[in-house]
Computed example of a mutant assay.
Amino acid sequence: MSFATLSRIGLDKPLRLLLINAGDAESITWAGLVQPLRLCARALGPQAFQLDIRTPQQVAAEGGHWHVALLVADETQAPLSGELCRAVIERCRSAPFWGGVGAAVLWLADAGVMDGVRIALPWALYADAEAKAERAILTPHLFDIDGPHLTCCGGAASIDFSLTLIDTIFGADAQALVKEALCVDKVRGKEERQRVALQARFGVLQPKLSEAVTLMEANIEEPLSTDDIASLVGLSRRQLERLFKQYLGSLPSRYYLELRLQRSRQLLLDTHYSIVQVGLMCGFSSGSHFSTAFGTLFGNTPREERQRKLMPPS
């Protein structure tokens, strides 16, 4: 599944979204997530969107039916008790799309329900994840979707995640209304990374990996080969591929391609360069290759991406 799949649930009326507040109601993780959704629910009305906010105890005792269910907690919050946590997770998993925001992502991974799933975890909790949730695949992204699983690292990224959910489920017009109300100019995409995530996670333990990613980020327009990168960081190609597979769940070539496509998407949204120019600036000599690769990652073509964002609110 992808965000394209998530968008189909917006056809159901009313769309029911559950937020379970297991942390501090004044934290930016919670406020950044709930405020855009509250504004959206107010604008669309209860016939289109019903936002359900509950405590873990309420969810465990009462249950319900939702299209999306998210467990939310800031990093300072102690984990839920075993029995309560299991009950809340069971309720969440009954929704077609479910997951966690902030520290709750680690709780889900620790419970074993994120085994083999790509998760966006706050970088400050990476050390805990290494000890408790080894079978989950940590990504350095602000938020992620893997099958029915939705995860967000929390903090200020909660705002981007919330606005992206609104755009995906209810459309660009609904997102534009909320952005205007919140005075938000730019929404960061799910592919953008926590800036300190790699260093925080690997630190001095995997300097070669951090160095390889830095080389990729510095060489977008004229991509280096995997052999070149391996040589520059002092590893064999096989050693480099093993590092990427173990710690990033991807091959160097695939990770590099996604970096370039993420950069191209940013240029399409934030600049007036032509689509051909954007492709060249991100290392694609062929327009058809650029369009195919972009569509595979994001679910639409570069032209569709730009047209969708240029479409004025109704």
Rank of each mutant, 00 (worst) to 15 (best):
E222V: 02
D228V: 02
E192Q: 15
S231D: 13
G249S: 07
P207D: 07
L165K: 01
L261A: 07
V105D: 10
R237F: 05
F143G: 09
M311S: 12
T271A: 11
S231Y: 03
I166S: 03
V72R: 10
G23T: 01
R260H: 09
F161Y: 14
L268S: 12
T226M: 11
W30S: 07
V88S: 07
T292N: 13
V34M: 00
L125E: 00
P223V: 08
Q50H: 07
A230W: 08
L11I: 00
S236Y: 09
T292K: 15
K13G: 00
K208Y: 08
Q239K: 15
G112S: 11
E130Y: 08
L80A: 03
F298H: 12
A156E: 12
T29A: 02
I169Q: 12
G45P: 01
E241S: 15
Q175N: 00
I275L: 13
D12T: 14
T301D: 08
G64R: 06
A212Q: 11
A124R: 15
G82K: 10
M311G: 08
D24V: 12
D115R: 14
L224C: 05
P313L: 12
G171L: 04
F294C: 11
T164I: 12
V117A: 12
P122E: 06
E75W: 04
A31K: 14
R306P: 11
Q77R: 15
G64W: 03
G64A: 08
Y126P: 05
L80G: 05
T292W: 10
L257S: 11
Q194C: 02
W98S: 10
V213S: 04
G287Q: 14
L84K: 00
Q206R: 15
R308N: 09
G116D: 10
L165R: 06
A218C: 01
H141P: 10
P14I: 03
M281P: 04
F284Q: 02
D146N: 11
S250E: 13
L215V: 05
N219R: 14
G45H: 10
F244W: 01
V187G: 09
A200I: 04
P313N: 09
R195H: 06
A78W: 06
V184G: 04
C152L: 02
E304N: 11
V178F: 12
W30F: 14
P14C: 10
A174P: 02
A181T: 06
A131T: 08
H65S: 12
C282T: 13
H272W: 04
G234Y: 09
V196H: 13
W107C: 02
L44I: 04
V187K: 12
I229N: 06
D173Q: 14
